[in-house]
């Protein structure tokens, strides 16, 4: 039990660092020294200590959204196993619940984008819903492929010990593509841009400041680590079950960190060496991910 709690604390504290590391790698690739990998923590600390500005034209939706978004990401984190194939909320729901939890957060963020009446927020909401309508089916299909392999949709089981399967690898790649969209990264979105007209995710959160913004940012970090964890567990399952020794836990952590770092490097390279796609071209990219997931499902039914 102690390890399960440890796992949650570990994931929450690690989440901003993953973003920090990706940014650092990107900057180094661009021949720059770049900010410290701890910068996301400083940003969060700064935002939490700041005052907040709230448009007088906005309603309760705007105020409540950061909490819902944060809560949904946190709950998702409780569902996924990282280095032990067990998670605190594993009997609450399965793979499908995860998809719906994220949809809930997204739904409210999109509402909040519309709520302030700013044109950028509305554009962001519309684009986010548009993109997610293509991303979600791909996620679900990839999950199906994985659950076929294990005969269950329970996350602890599907992420747990099992043989390395070809179909899981394909499903993992499909998930990786969707992750680019879900974590608003190039080639779908661009986290670093200041051009409001091109934003997707950021545009919805433009009106937020202070602690609310900090919650939304933290929620994005958590969401990112959930997706990375899912990919890593799909491609290369978690080795250890609930009853483990500290040594095994440590080994588990090291394997987990290695997997996450690999994904981080992969994403950093993608972001630096690809241009962002045209908004409507992103659909093709996500279709591709869906087709991959479908292939994974077919492979899984064939036992590969």
């Amino acid at each position: 039990m102690i390890f399960i709690i440890l796992q949650i604390i570990f994931l929450i504290s690690l989440a901003p660092l993953v973003s920090g590391i990706i940014t650092k790698i990107k900057n180094n690739l661009r021949l720059r020294r770049g900010q410290s990998v701890w910068q996301p923590y400083y940003n969060l600390a700064k935002l939490f200590s700041k005052d907040e500005v709230c448009s007088e034209h906005s309603s309760w939706v705007f105020k409540i959204t950061p909490f819902i978004v944060f809560a949904s990401s946190l709950l998702a984190l409780f569902l996924v196993p990282a280095f032990i194939a067990k998670s605190p909320a594993q009997y609450l729901g399965d793979l499908l619940l995860l998809v719906f939890i994220f949809s809930l957060g997204r739904f409210f963020l999109a509402l909040a984008g519309l709520d302030t009446g700013s044109s950028f927020g509305g554009m962001g909401s519309s684009r986010e819903m548009f993109i997610s309508s293509f991303a979600e089916p791909a996620i679900v299909m990839a999950f199906f492929a994985v659950s076929f392999n294990f005969g269950t949709t329970n996350l602890a089981a599907t992420c747990g010990p099992g043989a390395l399967k070809f179909s899981s690898l394909i499903a993992g790649i499909a998930l990786l593509i969707v992750t680019l969209a879900e974590t608003s990264r190039i080639p779908i979105d661009n986290q670093e841009t200041h051009l409001e007209l091109t934003m997707i995710h950021e545009a919805m959160a433009l009106e937020y400041s202070g602690p609310s913004l900090a919650l939304i940012e933290l929620a994005s970090y958590l969401k990112q680590i959930v997706f990375f964890t899912l990919i890593s567990a799909t491609v290369y399952p978690v080795v250890f079950c609930a009853q483990i020794t500290p040594i095994q836990a440590l080994t588990g952590i090291i394997i987990y960190l290695a997997k996450i770092s690999f994904i981080a490097v992969l994403i950093a390279f993608t972001e630096v060496f690809l241009a962002k796609m045209r908004l409507f071209r992103a659909v093709d990219f996500l279709y591709f991910s869906f087709v991959l997931a479908l292939l994974a499902l077919i492979a899984a039914t064939l036992g590969a």
Binding site: R30, L31, R32, E192, T193, E271, L274, A275
Partner: peptide, 16 residues
């Protein structure tokens, strides 16, 4: 132009 489409590597070279 490269930076506005999020293509940051050549953008960095151009600034050099």
């Amino acid at each position: 132009i490269a930076l506005d489409v999020g293509f940051s590597f050549p953008a960095a070279l151009a600034s050099l």
